[in-house]
Amino acid sequence: MKPVDNMQAAQGVNAARWAISAIFLLNGAGIGLWAAHVPVVQARAGIDTGVLGFLLLTIAGGAIAAMPLSGWLSGRWGTRPVALGSAWLFALTSALLMNVDGVTALFVAAFAFGASNGVLDVSMNANAAEVEAARGVPTMSSFHGFFSLGGLLGAALGGLVIGAGWGDGRGALAAGVIIALAVALAARFVFRVPPQGAAGHSHFALPRGPALFLGLLGLLCFAVEGALVDWSALLLTERTRAEPASAALGYSAFSVAMAACRFAGDRLVLRFGASRLMVFGGLGMFGGLLLAVLSTNFALSALGFALIGVSAANVVPLIFAAAARMPGMSAGGGLATVATLGYAGLLMAPPLLGSIAAHTNIAVALGLLSLSGLVIAANAGIVKRMG
């Protein structure tokens, strides 16, 4: 697709940019809202932490299972209807997950929530890649910035809702309705591109060649991000003797730094190029994790987490943008193939790190994970070759 020259068409592409940005924001908000409700849902369902772990695994499993379907649907029907349909389904399932009673119903709702999020994740990224191609300038990082911002807003909203006594599901239901209505308002502006099934493979394919390398790089980056969700607070309490309330600030430093740097990412790509930004990202992830695990000072460890956020912020957007440009595949098909392997890092990292930590300690486990940054830096050139 060539950059748009006609003024009217350019205005349409600009409107499409903000429309899909809104969907990224709403998706992040829904996930942030769920994160805030996890303890409330656990208490209401009467499940222990072991069962809760399986519930979270079910959500991730639903997402990974549905991602290949999203690539096929996007190639067959186009990214716009799939992104909109899955966004509405996401609004419904997010409200359902935080309102159901009974363990069986909770697990069914968790799988549906994960599946709708998996389809939405691939299709909205594919649509964003089409908008980026139409604009002719890097844009993907800003889309992921809106997702990160949405996560922060959703978590904050969840805290307010629960504090106001609406944690019984009423707040989540109201948020689901708002998300659905907001998607409806954005729908008319979401970018339309004819289905690409005839021009290239629209389906999921087993990763090989460039797709395999991109997927593995995505897996390593998601493994680092997932590890910080599960283990950053524990690391700070063990290494720096921080109180639990203070230890939570480590992940907050990572999240805020990541959100801020994603909004600057597109300008950084233009100035330094995708390959150099990937090298910086990998080396920064390596250095940040080492600083976090080696330091016994709370401020230095938190600074390490912030450095990881700054460095990792644009790695996944660059990988996804490259996946959408893979020769012989539609944007949705390429993203489904790479994202499915990448998101497996979220499934594999927590139990693997837990096993290593059980035989050593969490600092050693995260220290080994820091080597992922070096692998990402060493293979950064692949994002340029996909251009």
Rank of each mutant, 00 (worst) to 15 (best):
C261M: 15
M278E: 04
A264E: 06
R276I: 03
A253N: 11
S255Y: 13
V279E: 05
T240Y: 03
F272K: 02
A260L: 14
G273A: 09
F280N: 01
E243T: 02
R239T: 03
L270F: 05
R276Q: 09
A274H: 10
A260Y: 08
V256M: 11
A257H: 02
M258W: 13
R262Y: 01
L268R: 04
M278R: 08
M258H: 08
A260K: 01
M258F: 13
V269G: 04
M278T: 10
F272R: 08
G273L: 10
R267N: 15
R239G: 03
R267M: 15
G250V: 05
G281H: 14
A247K: 07
L277Y: 08
S275H: 12
G250R: 07
E243Q: 04
A242W: 00
M278S: 11
F280Q: 00
L277A: 06
T240S: 10
V279M: 06
L249V: 03
A253T: 07
G250Y: 02
C261D: 05
R271I: 06
A245W: 08
M278D: 12
A259V: 12
R271W: 04
A259H: 10
A242M: 01
P244M: 06
A248C: 13
A248D: 13
A257P: 02
F263R: 05
R239A: 02
S246W: 01
E243D: 09
A242L: 01
L270D: 15
G250T: 06
A242R: 00
M258G: 12
F280T: 04
V269W: 02
